[in-house]
Design a binder for these strands. Structure first.
Lengths: 333, 333
DNA sequence: TTTAGCACTCATCTCTTGACAGTGCTAACT
DNA sequence: AGTTAGCACTGTCAAGAGATGAGTGCTAAA
């Protein structure tokens, strides 16, 4: 158990380090505290022994350890008061009443602007919705567009070229069959149903008729299962002093460019706030980085995630409330 | 007019510099040529006087000037023979017969992989297509989804909440009116038509009835006019020696992150290959960068652009044929 | 016209040095 | 006991001094 004064010192060190990114020395600390540098040095030595602080070299000031950050986030941290102002900015964004996709995108942009870190949103996927209606609309020549609409309003389309001279009535027949088979089937089960439920007489009929339509379907459906994702403020990281080394920058930017970030954000079983500090995200490029993520719920079973990626030296007391506030807003949409 | 030997020297300097990114000296050149360093130095001095070469400092080797690159691209350059191999890779990508969006995305990825530069594609916009069909499909409660389909198969949708207790028949009536008014109207004119053609009796009726539907429409239509765009291989630039300076990196990454790249790629009136070398793209972040772009045509009036961004010291003789080859393929889709 | 030779110019790398920020420890003070 | 002043010690960082080397321009000879 930490003594009160130790807590105070730890908190101060973290908050100063978050601002300056420089190891914090006893002289510097004593300006904010009513103890002499020597006393503070003793406390720091103790905190280091307990694993809350580290040194960058034998005669440097102290730097928080991952354990230190954790303790800070869990017990020491108090919400940054200025965050209130930022929240009104979020409010006003939501007042504009835009389409959800755009709202998420703008929210993520705002978030990375407010925090100066990188923001990520994983949109809800259509995977949990069910087929509502399938349509085939003739366009020109032999080309038609296939439409699939789900019960939550997700839409996917794909152009297909039918064998020339296909009978229109026959087509409407096919579409009717598809609607019969697939109505109210969850998106996640459609491809199985189409592929393996071949015993079904009607599907046999269909396959015999035109393989291409089925393929177009499968294509459209796989697109349903890919949830959109938004990324903003990557370049903010370049202004963080921990990325003054070009190799680190390359590593990080490569990482952002790949879709590996998805793995990072896949939220934990625990469905509230998750804070992963430093090494905990096992990705090499994310050394010295932390991820804070919060799920949001859009509909029954439809959940997405928003997250902020920053250096371990992150303004948790600002980021965490902002993320939670944003998630609450998004859930209300 | 350049003498043959001068052309040879210029070409060699450019091709060596493209590989090494180091100023090219006379001794180095003489290894590839059957003249002594002194002779070559004389030619280089002449080429510098004519503005094809530059020095980084008084006693450094030579570096091509922008004028030098231009001359190279226009007259000296011969297609890199290995590009053939890359083209078969492009071929095999197109054999997979994916949806167009995905094809473009994958093509751009491949392109940045093959070149080690950054690739951009500007998808064709739906702006030039016409309204084919409008539908309103009830989902649950008072929520319906609005669908707009164009004659080329573009689809946009938007969920709307209708005033509770809206009559279904009334709704189908509204949709019929909208279809009547907007059928075959070019997307680019829809919003004008809806907004200013208010004299039209039927629209008056509609507005009186429900403002929300109109807004949903306008929203869906504005999304039609935004052409998708694809960006890949940003981080490739970080491995180019011209970006060993962090400030440059920040500038460039910022630029990539903003949608300003669109401005860069907006293709010229001249509808073939465009090569913009160095300062010609007036954007500060693009100092020392070149852009090579080629339009591709998808349908009557539907054109997009693909482009490669790299350092001025770019492998033009590889990039240009690849881009053109890719554009040809995309046009065939 | 070509080439060898030479003096000269920068950029770059390494080594040294001094300033500086911070620590741990000891001894004195409350 | 807990706190504080003093001091020797340690590591980082920036600036300066050579030393090295690649490359040039110019001149004079082949």
């Amino acid at each position: 158990m930490l003594k009160e004064r130790q807590k105070l010192v730890l908190k101060l060190i973290i908050e100063i380090f978050v601002k300056t990114a420089e190891p914090v020395g006893s002289r510097n600390l004593s300006k904010h505290l009513s103890f002499s540098p020597a006393t503070i040095r003793n406390e720091m030595a103790d905190l280091e022994d307990m694993g809350y602080l580290e040194k960058t070299h034998s005669s440097s000031g102290r730097v928080p350890s991952e354990k230190g950050y954790h303790y800070y986030v869990e017990t020491l941290m108090v919400e940054e008061p200025e965050t209130e102002v930022d929240m009104t900015l979020i409010d006003s964004l939501f007042e504009q009443n835009m389409a959800r996709d755009e709202t998420i995108e703008r929210a993520i942009n705002l978030l990375s602007q407010l925090t100066n870190y990188t923001s990520i949103a994983l949109g809800p996927s259509a995977q949990n919705s069910r087929v509502k209606k399938i349509e085939l609309i003739p366009l020109y020549g032999d080309v038609s567009v296939l439409l699939v609409v789900t019960n939550l309003g997700y839409v996917e389309s794909k152009n297909i070229t039918l064998p020339s001279g296909t009978d229109t009535e026959e087509l409407t027949g096919i579409i009717r069959i598809l609607n019969d088979i697939l109505y109210d089937v969850p998106i996640s089960q459609v491809s199985n149903k189409l592929r393996y439920d071949i015993n079904h007489e009607k599907i046999k009929e269909l396959l015999a008729y035109n393989r291409q339509i089925i393929d177009a379907f499968l294509d459209a459906f796989t697109r349903f299962t890919q949830s959109k994702f938004y990324l903003s403020g990557q370049s903010n990281m370049l202004y963080q002093p921990e990325f003054k080394d070009l190799d680190r920058v390359r590593e990080l930017m490569n990482f952002f460019e790949k879709n590996d970030i998805l793995k990072l954000v896949e939220h934990e079983s625990n469905n509230g706030l998750t804070v992963r500090i430093g090494q905990e995200n096992e990705i090499k490029a994310m050394k010295d980085c932390s991820v804070v993520m919060v799920p949001y719920q859009v509909n029954e079973g439809e959940t997405g995630t928003i997250a902020v990626v920053g250096p371990t030296r992150m303004e948790y007391r600002k980021v965490i409330p902002l993320l939670q506030y944003l998630a609450k807003h998004l859930s209300k949409l």
